[in-house]
Nucleic acid binder design. Sequence first.
DNA 1: GGACGCTATGGCACCGAGTGTCACCGGGCA
DNA 2: TGCCCGGTGACACTCGGTGCCATAGCGTCC
Lengths: 197, 197
Amino acid sequence: MTEAAGDAREATRARIEAAALELFTGRDFETVTADEVADAAGISRRTFFRHFATKADAVWGDFHAHVVRLEELLAGTDDAQPVLASICAAYVEVNDYAAEDLPLLRQRMRLILTEPALQAHSQVRYADVDRVVAEHVARRTGDDPHSLVPRLVATATRAAATTAFETWLIGEGSLAEDLHTAFDQLAGGFPGLRRPD
Amino acid sequence: MTEAAGDAREATRARIEAAALELFTGRDFETVTADEVADAAGISRRTFFRHFATKADAVWGDFHAHVVRLEELLAGTDDAQPVLASICAAYVEVNDYAAEDLPLLRQRMRLILTEPALQAHSQVRYADVDRVVAEHVARRTGDDPHSLVPRLVATATRAAATTAFETWLIGEGSLAEDLHTAFDQLAGGFPGLRRPD
DNA sequence: GGACGCTATGGCACCGAGTGTCACCGGGCA
DNA sequence: TGCCCGGTGACACTCGGTGCCATAGCGTCC
């Protein structure tokens, strides 16, 4: 196998993913049972859980690859660049989708940011992202990755990215633009809030 | 009733909470069944779920009251104060526990920040906090509470608070101190990261 | 070509979190 | 005494997730 069977596995995985996304956007995430997704994908319930550990996982494509790519991008950033700028650039690039993939991304992100069960699940996923970013910051500052500043920068920048995603979903602008806006606010210490009034 | 029975209800609720906390700290959260907690509290499994909608909820005391108090504190802040400072002050005050309650707080926070299932659950809880903070920021800046800056400030300050809690758990300092450190970093745009190197 | 092994899959039984329902008990109240 | 009502227990059921075993397809090696 490894060739044909591997492809077949990828194909069924993609079928499941497509079926799941369609059902979840049509109705509330929680009201769709794993059985229904399996039926729609033409496989058994048991097989569904062999491809995705969790019902929620079917919404996040191959998120691990995403994290790995982010890590590579961070490792490849220029040390002459400010740390926050390097993180922003990495976030922008890892989310640089082709125009034809944007509708799918919107669909996914809408689910993840809207459905409570998926919001909860996302925390576990984001922990990986935070770890990677914190390590990058620590590498740049010489701090322990578990100390306050690297951790804080990681969670704060992720907050910025998430907020950027939210405004991108609502509005019509580009994701890169919203990411830069959010990171600028963060890096500037929220200039609009500085002076009272 | 309403007097005697209400007290009794509070009492059983407290018993459940205590039993849950003890069991969850003794073993992994997920390996403790709701049946066990119910048995330890001397009630039935069904009654457990009448007091707490979720196994995870037994860890968070009356969190809603916490959020309400935070909202009041934010409403009562001085408008001459910078916005971030007012949020920091509110976070500090809402988490100003008596010395004798600190061990319990540590126990709770360790669970919430450590156990994956509770981490996931926390996202839903934090959404309330974010809403309250975003509304406060919007009131101060005149923005729409759903626009980027209020949302971003809310999630970023919560990230600061969470990180402060994490370092507080590990170290020996005071929580207020760690909160101020984190908020100072945030308000200053992470001064240590500004210039490369 | 046949035996072997690996992998994907299906079916089944099981556990645990929640939930709806009904029946019961106790205490306040007319 | 009889009624009402809130807290409780018992039971059955749904659904997410897992372990186990059996089977089918396909590639490999003798």
